[in-house]
């Protein structure tokens, strides 16, 4: 079953007097509960594409459906609401809220975006903190834990709303090799356990080998799709 269907997406922007084509005629389909990576050199359009999939930006032309919703047609408020319900984000710099504890950071989307009742909230937060292995750090603030732990918290925050899709832009770029593998394995586990689709961009060739589908972007164009042949559990 397809979660994302992208058709002929183009994205241009002005840089001074020059019009730059960041994405050129991109089309692809991504299935539910898959682990997909977009790779390519810097400036190839990976982040621009993830921003479009994440409803953070609008294309110049093209169509994108996520869970049968035409996301490019959503206005600002509806896009925010759609993100809150359907998309989780994992950031390269973790982007945890420094004044909130680990627990409160994971709780934030349930509290401020989805208004989940307290009992359900506690259960979901603790389940995910357990699952990502930072339950014992729950009362610490982000500046009191390591980079790997921060990214685990970030993954828990992205998953806590039971989103269908999690987008991660270079999620391992600021992590050491061991932590990077741990994060990828965690994504795989969550994909298998919760049926979540993970899409991430990366430069790291070793990590790329762990995913099911690899899209390669070069100069804004999708140049190849490679299915690694990994068996999907869903």
């Amino acid at each position: 079953m397809e979660l994302i269907v992208a058709e002929n997406i183009n994205k241009s922007y002005q840089s001074g007097e020059v019009s730059v084509k960041a994405l050129k005629d991109i089309s692809f389909k991504i299935e539910v509960a898959s682990l997909v990576s977009f790779i390519g050199p810097s400036g190839s359009g990976k982040t621009t594409l993830l921003n479009l999939i994440g409803c953070l930006d609008k294309p110049t032309s093209g169509a994108l459906k996520i869970a049968d919703t035409d996301v490019f047609g959503l206005d600002r408020r509806k896009a925010a609401s759609f993100r809150g319900k359907n998309i989780g984000f994992i950031f390269q710099d973790f982007n945890l809220i420094p004044v909130l504890t680990v627990y409160e950071n994971v709780e934030y989307p349930l509290l401020m975006v989805q208004d989940v009742p307290v009992a359900d909230r506690n259960k979901r937060v603790m389940t995910l903190l357990d699952a990502v292995g930072v339950a014992d750090q729950k009362d610490k603030y982000p500046d009191q834990i390591s980079g790997g732990q921060k990214q685990r918290v970030s993954i828990a925050r992205a998953l806590v709303t039971k989103t269908k899709l999690v987008l991660a832009d270079e999620p391992t770029a600021n992590l050491d090799h061991e932590s990077a593998y741990m994060v990828i394995n965690l994504m795989k586990k969550m994909k298998d356990d919760l049926g979540t689709t993970f899409i991430f961009s990366t430069h790291d060739q070793k990590i790329v080998g762990e995913v099911e589908t690899i899209y390669t972007l070069e100069d804004g164009a999708l140049t190849s799709r490679e299915d690694t042949g990994r068996v999907k559990d869903v």
Partner: peptide, 16 residues
């Protein structure tokens, strides 16, 4: 600004 971007990205409505 980055924090605002983060909370907006994860779906916090503008009025909040």
């Amino acid at each position: 600004i980055r924090e605002i971007g983060t909370i907006a990205a994860i779906g916090t409505m503008p009025e909040k």
